[in-house]
Amino acid sequence: MPQALLQVKNVKKYFPVARGLLFATSGWVKAVDDVSLTVEENETLGLVGESGCGKTTLAKLILLLEDPMAGEVLFRGRNLQELSRGEMRQYRSAVQAVFQDPHSALNPRMRIGEIIGEPLAVNHRLPKKAIQERVAEVMEQVGLDPAYARLYPHEFSGGQRQRIAAARALASNSKAIVLDEPAASLDVSIRGQIINLFKDLQEKLGLSYLLITHDLAVSRHLSHRVAVMYLGKIVELAAADPLYAEPLHPYTKALLSAALPSHPDETREEIDISGEVPSPLDPPSGCRFRTRCPFAIERCAEVEPPLKEVAPGREVACHLYP
């Protein structure tokens, strides 16, 4: 069995909601509520869900931008909370991120050579010359001419900027990259280029990705396994092929049926999930999806279904699969 590179164990992150004159905490937004998952070496785990389901909070916990309230995040079996400062620095260079909007992810006042080299300067304290060489190397890896290192971000198109962000993530020899909607802000004709780039880089460098997206088709093309999140919980986790071929959880079914067709004659069973995502401040009792679920039974309101393995490598949190 391949070794788990990243492991998230029973992690919880609640955000307090302050109300009233004295800003007393009146409730908690359960952004991530008891989530466990692993990312293996050289694997892409797709994390799919709609806005507000907690996927970005989960990414922030992994990137150490938020601290978990409970549970632990492990990197190669070691709890991040227990790392020394030096080890922490190593972790930060091993796990990098590429965000949705390359316009705001790149500092407009820095030359792109400086942007790409910054993780090296901060985490590795390399001499200038070595940084320049490494920057040229990664720029070539992402398909940018190293001569562009002197230019500023505004001189590049959206697709090229996403390549710059990828180069920065690669610069410090990272092992894993969190991709947060990496293609969402790009034009259709460019999107394919970027998806292919990440695929190529993974093959060449043996990277692991945590791919966060609401776009099921993008996730289909990059992910080996997919986790579906709803209101802070993982509701289904499976290898990509079986998940797309036969989704089990009603929410996964609904998501797939709501995805847009690629041909007008492509019809699929429409599962009409009415209403909207309930407030994470006050999630429904029992199963959180029950208020929109067309298959809900009495038991769903009473008992929260645990995430259970129903077939090898296939986990679902639903009472329909006992």
């Binding site: 198109s157 697709g159 090229q160 034009d187 259709v188 004709s189 460019i190 999107r191 394919g192 280029q193 998806i195 292919n196 695929k199 776009d215 099921l216 088709a217 993008v218 289909r220 093309h221 990509a240 092929d241 797309y244 071929a245 797939l256 995805a259 690629s262």
Partner: peptide, 23 residues
């Protein structure tokens, strides 16, 4: 090019075709 670069939900292909260059 646009149609081919549309990622399909029900098939996974090794490389997504894309249109080279930028508008």
């Amino acid at each position: 090019g646009l149609l081919h670069s549309l990622p399909k939900l029900h098939q996974r292909i090794a490389r997504l075709p894309s249109i080279e260059g930028t508008p």
